[in-house]
């Protein structure tokens, strides 16, 4: 197989603020290859953002971060990189779009020149060519009248248009990985579908890797090749989108899918919330993090931390971290 464009292994990320310390990511691994779309799902606070953006140094200032494990982009070690190498990596290999384009785009800067600058820096274009490139990027992301929008400020565009501009900005330096952190959460329902279609189209045309962080199971089913289900900084289940969505194994995944309205799945009989709240991630305890909310938890669940093991449904990629279910299915584990 090719070198993954982005991969982390046994990643542990502790966050420290003056008041709290949190183990936001607790031994997670993932990798993504060119042309692939990886969805990361999980409740709010499960560590989706920290896991994907943390190794790139893209967490907000004011949080001290302690990272262990390995993180590589295109085989290059992100952990060992100098600040300037990491900056170059962020500006070249990765494009990022965020949840709320209104706050993620600088209110004091015009949209177009930012795109032009990215294109310029990446491809060494002349000012005039960079402007053309920026306008064509705006056109490509479906922004009507792009030459006019070039000189607009963020507040002059609607949320959907802004998210398109954000996507254009992320693409301007021709990245190999596009990270979309809940790209549709802040948008109107009608616009959501358009933005997802745009991401899909770009992914197809450019063959780039897409990491899609989302709460939207519908989006996962449409876009994703593979899915990671994150719970309290740990991976509960992972596998192909079809496997995870139609044959979920982990009780948390089942609960998550059941809590989605009108998602076709044999488990869902109406919408149900997962009872209880995510655990307090300030203390790191042994055992399964989900045990206290789990309907099939056994005393042994609290004793040992479950590891990800193949589910045994014929797909080696489909793995879950729940010995109770796997035992019941007769899957041997060590």
């Amino acid at each position: 197989m090719t070198t993954p464009v982005y991969a982390v292994e046994n990643l542990i990320i502790d966050l420290y603020t003056p008041t709290v310390s949190v183990r936001a990511v607790d031994g997670a691994s993932f990798e993504i290859h060119p042309g692939e779309t990886l969805a990361i799902v999980g409740e709010s606070g499960s560590g989706k953002t920290v896991m994907t953006l943390g190794p790139l140094g893209l967490l907000p200032e004011g949080v001290a971060i302690d990272m262990r494990g390995t993180a590589r982009a295109d085989g290059r070690d992100l952990v060992a990189m100098s600040q300037s190498e990491l900056s170059a990596m962020r500006g070249g290999e990765f494009g990022v779009i965020f949840q709320d384009p209104m706050s993620a785009l600088n209110p004091m800067l015009k949209i177009g020149p930012q795109l032009a600058e990215q294109a310029r820096r990446h491809a060494g274009l002349s000012a005039a060519d960079a402007r053309k490139e920026a306008v064509s990027l705006l056109a490509r992301t479906g922004i009507p009248d792009p030459a006019d929008r070039y000189d607009r400020y963020p507040h002059e565009l609607s949320g959907g248009m802004l998210q398109r501009a954000m996507i254009a900005l992320a693409l301007a330096a021709k990245p190999r990985v596009l990270i979309a952190d809940e790209p549709t959460t802040a948008l109107d329902a009608t616009v959501q579908a358009q933005i997802l279609a745009l991401i899909r189209q770009i992914q197809k045309e450019d063959g780039i890797a897409v990491v899609l962080i989302t709460h939207d199971i519908g989006a996962v089913s449409v876009l994703a090749d593979r899915v990671i289900v994150l719970y309290a900084g740990q991976i509960a289940e992972e596998g192909s989108a079809i496997d995870v969505l139609t044959r979920p194994v982990h009780p948390y995944t089942k609960g998550l899918l059941a809590s989605v309205p009108d998602f076709r799945s044999e488990i869902s009989s109406g919408t149900r919330e997962i009872p209880g709240l995510p655990p307090n991630q300030t203390k790191v305890e042994p055992g399964c993090r989900f045990a206290e909310r789990c309907s099939i938890a056994q005393p042994s669940c609290l004793a040992r931390r479950p590891t990800l093991l193949p589910v045994g449904d014929g797909s080696v990629l489909h793995r879950a971290a729940c010995p109770v279910v796997l035992n019941a299915q007769g899957v041997a584990h060590q």
Partner: peptide
Amino acid sequence: SRPFATTGFAKGLSRRGVLLREALP
């Protein structure tokens, strides 16, 4: 600490670059 600063880092700017280009205005 605002999201647009994170976008600035994502664009590939150094911290000094983000300060001058994104934060200062």
